[in-house]
């Protein structure tokens, strides 16, 4: 693994975490994704800014990660999914996402642009929520989180296709989808 010395340097990683956060927050704000109205517009399917940002990030990242992974510069970080964890947790997350109007990253960005509902409500609620989860984690982990294990970790394993083909098809599919979205006037 290249850069493993840097990965193990805890002090450097603290600084890097802050730097990645600064660039990420800057980009999210410039994209409009830290605004309640834009996020709710996405969930009401009237403003597709959030999806456009996410889809183009995934399209670029698909190719970038594929190349870096094969050149030995980046490792795959994929957890085995379960229905109990990914679907149930995802739906709970979604309800909170719609009620708060921010997600854990954009709530921090919203605080940075002056949203006090994100600071008092969002941060406060999130810290309570993760505490509740940590409290019940031992029993959840033995029951619902382990329910319905997904046997294949990655899409190419699931489809039984070569990785490069899935990356290429995914990238082309996203670009085509975004093009159609623009043509449809969103």
């Amino acid at each position: 693994m290249k850069f493993s010395q840097l990965h193990n340097n805890k002090k450097a990683q603290v600084v890097l975490g802050l730097c990645f956060g600064i660039v990420f927050g800057f980009l999210l704000q410039k994209g409009g994704a830290t605004s309640y109205d834009v996020i709710m517009g996405q969930l009401m399917l009237t403003d597709f800014t959030v999806l456009k940002i996410m889809a183009s990030a995934v399209a670029v990242g698909l190719v970038g990660f594929f190349l870096l992974n094969h050149a030995g510069y980046a490792q795959r970080h994929v957890k085995a999914g379960t229905i109990g964890s990914n679907v149930v947790g995802g739906l709970i997350f979604g309800l909170g996402f719609g009620l708060l109007g921010y997600c854990p990253g954009t709530v921090a960005g919203a605080v940075g642009q002056g949203a006090l509902d994100a600071l008092f409500g969002g941060f406060g609620g999130l810290l309570i929520g993760v505490g509740i989860f940590a409290r019940f984690y031992p029993s959840l982990n033995r029951t619902v989180l382990a329910y319905g294990k997904i046997q294949k970790e990655t899409v190419h394993e699931l489809l039984g296709l070569p990785e490069w083909l899935v990356v290429l098809a995914g990238c082309i599919g996203i670009v085509a989808f975004l093009y159609l979205l623009e043509v449809a006037g969103f």
């Binding site: 709970i92 309800l95 009620l99 994100a118 409500g121 941060f123 929520g129 940590a134």
Partner: peptide, 25 residues
């Protein structure tokens, strides 16, 4: 509403093992 939403978001994110950036992107 924001506190209630934040609580659900916190529980859901850890339940699912990630959020919009961790899983979504």
């Amino acid at each position: 509403a924001a506190v209630a939403g934040g609580i659900l978001l916190g529980i859901g994110a850890r339940w699912a093992g990630g959020c919009t950036s961790g899983h979504g992107i």
